[in-house]
Design a protein around this nucleic acid. Sequence first.
RNA 1: GGGCCGCUAGCUCAAUUGGCAGAGCAAGAGACUCUUAAUCUCUAGGUUCCAGGUUCGAGUCCUGGGCGGCUCACCA
Length: 493
Amino acid sequence: MSETGRSTGIHIPGWAERVADSLGVGPHVVVSGISVSGNIHAGNLREVLVAEAVANALRQRGEEVRFIFHADTIDPLRKIAPGIPQSYEEFIGHSLSHIPDPEGCHVSYAEHFLVPFEEALLEMGMDVEVLRSHDLYERGVYTEVTRGAIEHTERLREILQEVTHRKMPEHWSPYLPRASSGKLSGMRVLEHLPEQTSVVFADEDGFEEAADYSKGEGKLGWRVELAARWKALGVTFEPFGKDHTSRGGSTDTADRMSSEVFNYPVPGRYEYEWIGLKGRGDMSSSRGIVLLPKDLLEIMPPDAVRRIILGRDPARRFDIDLEGGFPRFMEEYRAEAGEPYIPFTHLVTVAQTFGEDQDAAAQMLCRGGYGEVARDTDKLARDLHYARNWAAEWAPESMRLGLLDQASSEEAAAGLDEEQRAYLREVSGKLRAEMDGEAVQELLYSTAIERGLKPKKAFAAVYRVLLGKSSGPKAGPFIAGLTLDQARERLSV
RNA sequence: GGGCCGCUAGCUCAAUUGGCAGAGCAAGAGACUCUUAAUCUCUAGGUUCCAGGUUCGAGUCCUGGGCGGCUCACCA
């Protein structure tokens, strides 16, 4: 198999191949456009990944493909998102690219939310061009389509009214000039001066101002802009969330504007469904349920992110399970790669037992029979990192481990019966530093049998004083991983 | 009302271009002198929502219907 892409072994899902097949010959421009009015979450990532998969399918077919992530940075702020200071009300109607970062760490509100997402795309090795709409306007990329739109104001208005069955205001204009106050909305366009690429308009107080649309001093209204963008960038494919594609929705109007006004063929389309987050509900910025791409990259490699976000079919809704079902997902992902791997649940135990001490973790893995896999230290470091983060953030209580401190351990010991305490004391006395996991396991088991103590009860005692729980990871290797002092202190009850 | 999606084993879901309906978990039986979301072996489990149609052959394609989920005028 020879791959055309830069990364080897790109897997093209069947749905992406079918979409690509329907697109005809290139060159192709694949676009994913997303608002930066708030956190760009894993649901938004689904759109980008749909576009990426189609772009890859086209590339594999030998097409020339430009893959664009279009950030709507010039869009006006519409409402105060949770976590944003109330004082930002004064910026409602202003471009996101012209509003200060609420946390002061980036050059604008737009960048504050865009940059982390952009970094995640980079980390995923995505071959994508990130464009900012305010920059496109300023560079004049939209000058021609803006002129065309203003010239066809009446036709555009008719389309909007026909499709949405809504009456557009008397002085409606496809172009929203920015007033000196910074506001985009509420202006009345009075005159178009095509040779100066500008419009004269009345601002909110009735004063006359002018805006040069070749310099980003305003923008097209959303529905018009969508169609205009197709033309300006030569878009041949764009995925849409289902909220855009219903009757009377933005794609309905844009389709007609594109073919009837801009004289541009409607790009190919794929309608994708939303993803939920199991255990936490649907993703929603306003309810504070936000899963960021970076959160995913903390617990799994980029290709696993692609797999979990796209699902089997992006046209289908499903809930991401990062809790109880996640280990299974990781196993399937690893198994599919065809390489030997360490079961994720085991990694989780090892990672929690040894923290940052990778050598100790590697030793434990060797004893467990995973020496071969553990030899690749870079890969192991990443895997342990993923497992540790997952355990801390998502793992069910039953899989979380933490060695009790001495005081809590004594407290736990007080709850055991005399039989169990005597057992622990005996084990403690027989523990030796040189014992490996198997030897400790044998010691734990045989001591229990000799004393006539049921293994289940014996092991429960061990877990109680070590972890404060009645069960845990395989006890022998776990204890062997501790220092002799740590183990003895807690077993001497 | 419009649109999209779904309906397959108790549950979660698979099933290339139409070609003997499968897997994981759960359940039942057995094994292991040893805790784990244990492991291993075996077993059982089905009118693929319904009714028609096309076909040698339909979970898959066509028509009609039912039920459920989501979405709908700037929230992916």
